[in-house]
Amino acid sequence: MSDEAQLVAGLRRGDREAFDAIYDRYRPRVFAFLARLSGDRALAEDLLQETFVRLARRAPDLDPATRLRPWLFTVARNLFIDHRRWVVLDFDRLRDLALWPSRPRRVDETPFDLTEASEAERRIEAALLDLPTKYREAVLLVGIEGLAPNEAANILGVRPDALRQRLSRGRALLRDRLEKR
C-alpha cells in the first residue's frame, strides 16, 4: 500500500496522526495556491481552514483510492469560487468589462514574506495577480503546483483542450505583464 493510500486509510478511521501528516504535507501548497488565487491573505487563511475541516468531516466517506492533492485543490478552488459568488462587487469582472480602472494589486505580505521574496519573485507575484481569474488558476495549478494538465482540467471542471487554451493564453498574458513591469 502506498504512503498516500495509508494516509487515506488512517483518515477514514479518524486517525489524528494521519490528518496531521496530510495537513503538514499539503498545507503550505494549498495556502500558497489560495493566497495567489485570491490576492487576500486573510481570505486565503479562512478558505484553508474550511478546506481541511471539510477533509476531516468527509474523511469516513473518502474513497480508499482518493488522491489527496487534487482533492484538496478542487475543494480549495471551489470554496474560492463560492466565496466570489457571494461578493456583490466583483472587481475582477468589472475590470474585465472595463467598468473599473485596472490597478495593481498584491497579496498582503507579512514582514517575513517581504524579506524572503526577491525582487524578481515580487514582480512575478504582482503580474500573476493582474491576470483574470480563469487564466490565473490554470497557470497556478500547472506552472507553480506542477499538476499535469489533465489533473488541472479535472480540478477546474473543464475539458483538457479548454485548459490548454487557458494555459496558453494565461502564459502569454503573464509574459506581456512581466515585460511591461
Binding site: 468531516r57 524572503e116 506542477g146
Partner: peptide, 27 residues
C-alpha cells in the same frame, strides 16, 4: 520562473488553530 516562487504558510497560532478544528471535525 514560476517554479522558483516559494511556498507560503500561515502563522503558527493560526496553523495550530486550523489543526485543532480539523481534529474536532474528525471526531
Amino acid at each position: 520562473a514560476l517554479s522558483t516562487l516559494g511556498e507560503r504558510d500561515v502563522e503558527t497560532w493560526r496553523r495550530e488553530n486550523i489543526r485543532r478544528r480539523g481534529h474536532e471535525a474528525l471526531g
